[in-house]
Structures are given as C-alpha cells and as structure tokens.
Amino acid sequence: MKRRDFLKLTAGGTAALACGVAEARPNLEANDNAIGMLYDSTLCVGCKACVAKCKEVNNMPPEIDGDKLAWDSARDLSDKTHNVIKVYKNGTATVKDAEIDGYCFEKRSCMHCVDPGCVSVCPCTAMRIDAKTGIVTHHPEVCIGCRNCMVGCPYNVPQFEYDNVFGQIQKCEMCNQPGVERIDKGMMTGCAEACPTGATLFGTRETLLDEAKRRMALKPGEIYNYPVGDVRKPDKHHEKKVPEYKQHIWGEKEAGGTNVMHISSIPFDKLGMPPLEERSAASVAETVQHTVYNFMALPAIALAGLAFVVNRNIDDDDDGGDA
C-alpha cells in the first residue's frame, strides 16, 4: 500500500486537469447568412400543403395510419415524414388561436438549431452544420446508426428507419440535400413555397427574426400585410388582422437558438415545445468533454503515472507472472 504514491498520482492528475481545463464552451453563434424559416401558427390554416410538398420533394411514401384512414396521415415525424402539421385543441376547439376552447396548428420539422445537439453527439461527424447555409445536414455514408442524434435532439427530430434492415437516419435538410439542392439553386424550401398563407415563411435567419419582431410589435386587431414565400422578396402579400401574439419568438434564444423559428398565440409548452434553457446542453457536454480530453493531455499523464505505479507493484508482487 503506497498511499503517498496514490496521493501524488491524484495530485498530478488534478494539476493536469487544471492545466487542461478548456474554456467553458459557450453556445455556438448563428451564421450571418444562415437560411431559415419562420412558422407563424396564427397564419396556418391546416391545409397540409407543406406536408404534401415535402413528400413530393423528398420522394417519400405516405404514412398510412392503420386502417383508420386511406391517405397520408402521419401522426408525427417519422422515417417517411420530415414535416407534419399537428393540432392543439382545448375544450370545444372552435376558436382559432384561442387557448381556451380554441385550437391552433403547429408545424413539426427540423428546427435546424444554431448549436445542434445531434451534431455535437454524433461520433462519426454524420451530422454537420453546413458552413454556408447553417443547415443541419445528415451524411448516411459515414453513419453507424448509433442513434445518439435522436436522443441528443431536444425536439426528437432525427428518425431512424427501424423497419428496414439497411435503414438510415432521416431528417429535414431544408431541401438542400444532394439531388435536390433547392437552396443552392436559389429556390425556397418546398414547404415555404407551397404554403398559401405565408405561415411558413422562408428567408435568412436574420431577416426572419426581424419580421418576427415586427409582428410581435403589432397591435392585435390592426391590419398587417403578411408576406408569402421569401420574406426578402415575397411572391405576394395578403392582409389579415393581427392576432394576439404571445411575446415569444421560439428559436431566438432556446438552447442557442434555431434557424427555424416559431411564433404563435398559444404558449409554446402547450404546442409540445420542450423546456429548454438558453444554454445548449451540447455546449455543456462539450465543455465537460474538452475539459477531460483536451489534447488527450490528462489521459496521457494519467497513463504515465499508472504505468509507473503498476510496474513497481508488479515487481513487488511475489506471484510475478500472473496477471
């Protein structure tokens, strides 16, 4: 028993840890040119044009809900559905955008986080942030299928094809995946293009955030000319009375923010948004990871110390050759 040795080892390790402590990793910053979308739930009429367009662009089959329905009726995101319109209902559910006795629609699709959990946890860099567009992309050719991205995503967006022996992860890539490349071609995302009301609005994150803030500042009841399509050069506008927006732009700050932002007249926890803090879990995880494994310094020092101690103890040992 060499208590002193062990203490020395511990002290050495702590010292190494102290030197190795990386600066706490803050949230990643939004890319200035990041493209995104703004979903205004008060404009959504539930026509599901975006859902249909998404299936068309991604060439995905309908999701048939058992024998209850005979058409595409995905209940949630799935390996065949990158985008789905869900509904919030309360009481009689007759008044649009009312919290009590009302209803409102909510879009579920990849939020394209500024500091994405899926990218942070993926061991093989199969999830990446596109440097130019800020889109969170998936690269199945290097994916091992560990599905850490699914558990690491606060919104449960990545979907695995469980029913396929040779399945892969599926997620929205804002219509810029290889073979589609709508963004590179200067087009809008399919869902934004299909949306008849501008409920799904396309643009850069910056311009969309401005638009969202503009809407927050409007007085309920006044008429606002809502843009449709791309907020920077709208296809057209339509006039509508301003609803009572909740003063909350989802995705402005949540877990480092998202490129796809939502606004609504119903509190977001009722719309199934997770309880997120401003600091992303990914940034905390990476801080811990880099503190321990900064340049592998700590493990290397620990190994040296351990090798030294073990070597001496094996020699001390009468039994010698037996491990």
Partner: peptide
Amino acid sequence: VLTHAPPNMFPEIESRE
C-alpha cells in the same frame, strides 16, 4: 378556413408514430 373548427383530422401534439 373555418372547416377545421373543431379540427378533427389532425394529429394532436402528443400523438406519435
């Protein structure tokens, strides 16, 4: 669009695949 009041043909927030 008044057709969906109340909306019966949509998955609710908590419904999953």
